[in-house]
Amino acid sequence: MTKADIARAVYERHGGLSSREAARLVDTFFQLLRERLIKGEKVQITGFGTFLVKTRRERRGRNPKTGDIIAIRSRKSIFFRSSPQVEAAAAVSSEAAV
């Protein structure tokens, strides 16, 4: 699934929008999420999940090519914790796959 598929769903559901407007709204949606996350803010979407910005501490790693030990700087990263509803959806797909 890509943004285009999501935009199509919005276009079909809404009725009064052109497909271009639907695409723009989907862009806006992800842009808004992005802006908040970049500020380090937590985004909690009931029924879907929570995006958390966490700090990963500095650690030592290895260059996989040369095997040299290198320092990996502390940095921010985004983690997603799915809501029970999304967890249930993922479990349904396990039943289909396994």
Binding site: V10, H14, S93
Partner: peptide
């Protein structure tokens, strides 16, 4: 209307997850 749009976006993503589909959002 904004509520419906947000709901639709999230529902379609949830449905994709339910089908085992991967969701790829460029830039995100």
């Amino acid at each position: 209307q904004a509520d419906v749009v947000v709901e639709t976006i999230l529902d379609s993503m949830k449905a994709a997850i339910g089908q085992g589909d991967r969701i790829e959002i460029r830039g995100f």
